[in-house]
Computed example of a mutant assay.
Amino acid sequence: MKTQFKPAHSLVWLSLIAGMSVLSGCSIDINGDDDDDKDKDMHESYHYQVTVTNLTQAQPLSPVSLTLHNASTKLWMPGEMASSAIEVMAEGGDNSKIAELSAVKMAYSGDGILMPGHSQSWMIESMYENYMHLSVATMLVNTNDAFTGKTGIDLSNLEVGMSMHYTTMAYDAGTEANDEINLPGPAAGGEGYNSTRNDVDRVHIHPGVLSNAELTGSMLSPEHKFDNPVTKISITRMQ
Rank of each mutant, 00 (worst) to 15 (best):
8 A>C: 13
17 I>P: 05
19 G>D: 09
19 G>R: 15
20 M>C: 13
25 G>E: 05
29 D>M: 15
34 D>C: 09
35 D>H: 00
36 D>Q: 09
37 D>W: 04
37 D>G: 06
42 M>K: 15
44 E>V: 08
50 V>E: 01
50 V>Q: 10
55 L>G: 07
58 A>R: 07
61 L>R: 03
64 V>C: 04
66 L>N: 06
67 T>Q: 14
70 N>Q: 11
70 N>V: 02
71 A>V: 10
75 L>C: 04
77 M>T: 08
78 P>I: 02
79 G>I: 01
85 A>S: 15
90 A>K: 05
95 N>I: 11
99 A>P: 03
102 S>L: 07
106 M>D: 06
106 M>C: 08
110 G>L: 06
115 M>R: 08
120 Q>T: 07
131 Y>M: 14
131 Y>R: 11
140 L>D: 01
141 V>A: 10
148 T>R: 12
149 G>L: 02
151 T>M: 06
152 G>E: 08
158 L>V: 14
162 M>P: 01
162 M>C: 12
163 S>I: 00
165 H>V: 11
168 T>W: 04
177 A>V: 14
178 N>I: 02
183 L>C: 07
195 S>Q: 11
201 D>R: 12
202 R>V: 00
204 H>T: 04
205 I>K: 11
206 H>C: 06
209 V>K: 14
209 V>C: 12
211 S>M: 01
215 L>G: 06
222 P>V: 03
229 P>F: 04
233 I>S: 02
234 S>I: 06
